[in-house]
């Protein structure tokens, strides 16, 4: 997994609530079998016309935000489907941090697995940051996961909080699957207990052929 420590970058304002994963990456682009290459389809239906030309007003098409690394929106960001294509598309575009008053559970989780930091801040603060972000390239934000502080363009610091375990994993870029595979003994004994207590599940618990 990719690490996240500290980031200074341009923030794109997306002053909408309930930005769903269908908006982030429309299903037309879910047919791939790779994790990469989705950035060009990020927000496709808002970013492009049907003929493929750009919608000039969409924030990520405007010169100031084409290189944005941070996204700021309102409540319930990432609601909808469980598609991890949403964080893959964000990451592939170059977004490393999303700031919102609240996130949908699965999306929130998926971010951490892909080196993206979702930051929860009160709505009023998000509104302020959106105002900052409207100023484009002159208004970079710094997000420091070590100190859990965000620095506004005027230098003001805002504290945010990330659960310690998630923060640790992101700072380290931990291989979670490898770490769990190493606990095979514990899983074995759990399954042994299941076999005893729920004998009708013998088939499902059979070893691979």
């Amino acid at each position: 997994m990719e690490k996240f420590t500290r980031l200074t970058g341009v923030a794109a304002p997306l002053p909408m609530a309930n930005v769903d994963t269908d908006m982030v990456i429309p299903k037309t682009y879910l047919k791939g079998t790779e994790r990469t290459g989705l950035g060009k389809h990020l927000f496709a239906e808002m970013r492009f016309n049907q003929d493929g030309s750009e919608q000039p007003d969409f924030v990520l098409n405007r010169p100031a935000w084409r290189q944005a690394q941070i996204l700021i929106a309102f409540e319930n960001f990432g609601c909808g489907s469980s598609r991890e294509h949403a964080p893959w598309a964000l990451r592939d575009f170059g977004i490393r941090c999303v700031i919102a008053p609240s996130f949908a559970d699965i999306f929130f989780n998926n971010c951490f697995k892909n080196g993206i930091l979702p930051v929860v801040l009160p709505k009023a603060v998000c509104a302020q940051l959106i105002d900052d972000a409207q100023r484009g390239a002159n208004a970079t934000l710094t997000i420091d996961l070590e100190t859990q502080e965000l620095t506004r363009p005027d230098g003001e610091r805002i504290a945010f909080e990330v659960e310690p375990s998630r923060r640790g994993r992101l700072l380290e870029g931990l291989d979670e699957i490898g770490a769990t595979v190493a606990k095979a003994d514990k899983i074995d004994s759990f399954e042994a207990r299941l076999r005893r207590n729920q004998p009708w599940r013998a088939t499902a618990l059979a070893a691979p052929a």
């Binding site: 994790r35 598609r83 991890e84 989780n109 697995k113 979670e176 699957i177 769990t180």
Partner: peptide, 16 residues
């Protein structure tokens, strides 16, 4: 509950 693809991989490998 629904999970993301990284978690799908985690469950395939570890059943947890």
């Amino acid at each position: 509950f629904g999970i993301g693809t990284s978690q799908v991989e985690h469950v395939l490998a570890t059943q947890t």
